[in-house]
Simulated scan of single mutants.
Amino acid sequence: MIEKKDIVLEKVVLVGIITQDQDQEMSKEYLDELEFLTYTAGGCVVKRFTQKMNMPNAKTFIGSGKMNEVMQYVKDNEVGTVIFDDELSPAQERNISKILNCKILDRTNLILDIFAQRAQTSYARTQVELAQCEYLLPRLKGMWTHLERQKGGIGMRGPGETEIETDRRIVRDKIALLKAKIKTIDKQMAVQRGNRGKMVRVALVGYTNVGKSTLMNVISKSEVFAENKLFATLDTTVRKVVIGNLPFLVSDTVGFIRKLPTQLVESFKSTLDEVREADLLLHVVDISHSNFEEHIESVNQILDEIKSKDKPTIMVFNKIDAHKPEPIEDALEVSKANYTIDDWRNTWMSKIGDNALFISALNKENLTEFRKRVYKEVREIHVTRFPYNHFLYPDVEDVN
């Protein structure tokens, strides 16, 4: 354990692989993200291990030589937790646990743990519990290793397997109960959404930790919890916003992430319904992040999965105050790392036109332009819905 300002952090080792589909640079990026996830969960990363492989080892994820290296480090440094960057199969998890003799987690398990910590409302806790149970079910066998001596032989048949089956039945029953509970709450939330009438709905979407909640606070003048950690927001927050005397609803949704566990996408279905039923999406992007283009792709992939990719969307490139391009050392070797904000404007972003906005929600930079653009889009949707009310709302030029 490592103590930091009265907080005890678990010592953690990270393990990832480099493959044809995931080169060294991408592997480093994923491990950087995994380290941030670990910090968010309350851990301190003391070492990273990577190995080049064509594909993960079916039994132990990494090769035996690298596994011995990890085992020696864990033993010498009294590390209690090893986290793997990809989802481990139940068999891999069991095999690795026997070798390393410490707590083994994968990216999915880690994200589920963070969600469990962050869930505030009864609904969010129910959603997380469902995802955890679905993740746990195929892995129950590994939790009964203390009964392995009862595998077979005279007088040794049954008890271990019976206990596992009993637990499986309990978990299956729990999953059924949680699904029924979520179904009931889904109906209630659908009624709530219906009761909002025909007001235009705007949803903030984007990768985790891009500043959605900070932007929500600025435009709605409210206090939505915001923190520089992954998944600070789990519960959807809906606020009424008025620009140029035109009222509309803005919802702040859970952030997306690469390799988002399928269990979470399914269990947070109702939260994502806020996105499905939105009239306009504000896709918030952290332009100061070196791999923000990959983040955009990940978010678009999830939007596609929930059939929301074709909705009217404004790209909001946030954190321009934190964007610091690397100095150009060789004029012949200019890369995206050297791009200024103006350079980025002239790339593929120029094709988006006025649907690309550059702001700093934290420092409130370019928010007048942002408010006008959002107002223009919301007004068009509103006037289509209520054609006789167009005279009530000023033109965008008159909006402050």
Rank of each mutant, 00 (worst) to 15 (best):
I7M: 08
K11Y: 01
V12T: 11
V15Y: 01
G16N: 10
Q24Y: 15
Q24T: 15
K28L: 14
E29Q: 13
L31C: 10
E33N: 12
L34Y: 12
F36Q: 14
T40H: 11
K47N: 08
Q51E: 15
M53A: 09
F61P: 08
G63D: 08
M67T: 12
V70E: 01
K75V: 03
D85C: 04
D86G: 04
E87P: 00
S89Y: 01
I96S: 09
S97W: 00
N101A: 15
L105Y: 13
N109G: 15
I114V: 10
F115C: 11
A119Q: 12
A119L: 05
Q120T: 13
A124D: 12
V128K: 08
A131T: 06
A131S: 09
Y135G: 07
Y135T: 10
L136H: 02
L137R: 10
R139W: 02
R139V: 02
L140N: 01
K141I: 13
H146A: 11
H146C: 00
R157C: 04
G158H: 08
E161T: 06
T162W: 14
E165F: 03
T166Y: 10
T166I: 15
V171F: 08
R172I: 02
D173F: 00
I175P: 02
I175D: 03
K179M: 06
K181E: 14
I182Q: 06
I185P: 00
D186I: 06
Q188K: 15
M189W: 01
Q192P: 00
G197P: 02
Y207I: 04
G211S: 10
T214M: 05
M216S: 04
N217F: 00
K221P: 00
K221W: 01
S222I: 01
E223R: 10
A226R: 06
N228H: 14
A232Q: 09
T233W: 07
F248V: 02
S251D: 01
F256R: 05
F256M: 11
K259H: 13
K259R: 15
L260N: 05
L260H: 04
Q263G: 05
L264T: 08
E266F: 04
E266R: 11
F268M: 09
S270Q: 14
S270M: 10
T271S: 15
L272H: 04
D273C: 07
E274S: 08
V275R: 03
V275Q: 05
V275H: 03
E277L: 05
H289Y: 14
F292E: 02
I302M: 12
K309L: 15
D310Y: 12
P312A: 07
H323L: 15
K324N: 13
K324C: 09
P325E: 09
E326M: 12
E333L: 13
S335F: 03
K336V: 02
A337N: 01
N338R: 03
Y339T: 04
T340F: 05
T340K: 07
D342Q: 11
D343L: 03
W344R: 12
W344E: 04
N346F: 00
D354P: 15
N355V: 11
A356I: 11
I359N: 09
I359D: 08
A361K: 03
A361H: 04
N363I: 00
E365H: 13
F370C: 14
V378F: 12
R379D: 08
P387V: 08
Y388L: 14
N389I: 03
H390D: 09
D398L: 10
N400F: 13
